[in-house]
């Protein structure tokens, strides 16, 4: 197995056997997604960095006891979430303004990348679509973030957000339908034009 091209699950298995290189690559690969998620939960970036370090250290210490994971990413995200919750609770005097409440405090700002977009008009439409996502509630945004950015499945999202799977599905569906009402007629004509131009 070549470590740099190994899948997360392969790396995870190697790491559990005590492979330090696999452990290092896992950390490097997931540092940014963890940092991204952490900084959505709490504004204090230094706290997030410290918590990630703690998560990594514990991973190594507990590697023998840790089971196989279908999604190492999810395993680490969940560990980070718990760590941050605990740290905030312990220092609640400092973080009283940042109590974790997914209904109010998940702070994420989306955009639609413009790589496909060549014309001004289409860029404007992508911007509108991004603006639409911004009108969703923090909880809905968190869902979209976890599903499409962190690439988690419904069960994993349900566990992180402490909802049941069906609620996650319903809430996501509701958010997407709400978007859909608004996005018909925004991007669609542009895409038709794009497809026709390519045809």
């Amino acid at each position: 197995m070549h470590l740099l091209t190994a899948t997360d699950i392969e790396l995870w298995e190697a790491f559990r056997q005590g492979d330090r290189q696999a452990y290092t690559i896992l950390m490097e690969r997931h540092y940014r997604p963890l940092y991204s998620y952490g900084t959505k939960l709490v504004f204090d970036k230094e706290l997030v960095k410290d918590c990630i370090q703690e998560v990594f250290l514990e991973l190594w210490h507990r590697r023998v006891a840790i089971g196989s994971a279908e999604s190492p990413r999810f395993y680490m995200l969940r560990a980070l979430q718990r760590k941050i919750h605990r740290a905030i609770h312990r220092n609640r005097l400092l973080y009283n303004a940042e109590i974790i409440n997914p209904d109010t405090s998940f702070s994420v700002e989306f955009s639609i990348e413009a790589d496909l977009i060549s014309r001004q008009e289409q860029a404007e439409k992508a911007r509108q679509l991004a603006a639409l996502v911004e009108t969703l509630s923090p909880r809905q945004k968190q869902l979209i973030y976890l599903r499409f950015y962190q690439d988690l499945d419904f069960d994993e999202i349900a566990e992180l957000m402490q909802l049941n799977r069906q609620s996650v599905y319903n809430l996501l569906r509701e958010s997407l339908l709400r978007l859909r009402k608004n996005w018909q007629g925004t991007l669609l004509p542009a895409l038709v034009a794009l497809l026709e131009a390519n045809a």
């Binding site: 955009s111 990348e113 979209i144």
Partner: peptide, 13 residues
């Protein structure tokens, strides 16, 4: 297009 291009505005390390 939506799934592929949805991005998050943030500064990562």
């Amino acid at each position: 297009y939506w799934v592929a291009n949805l991005a998050v505005n943030e500064q990562l390390p």
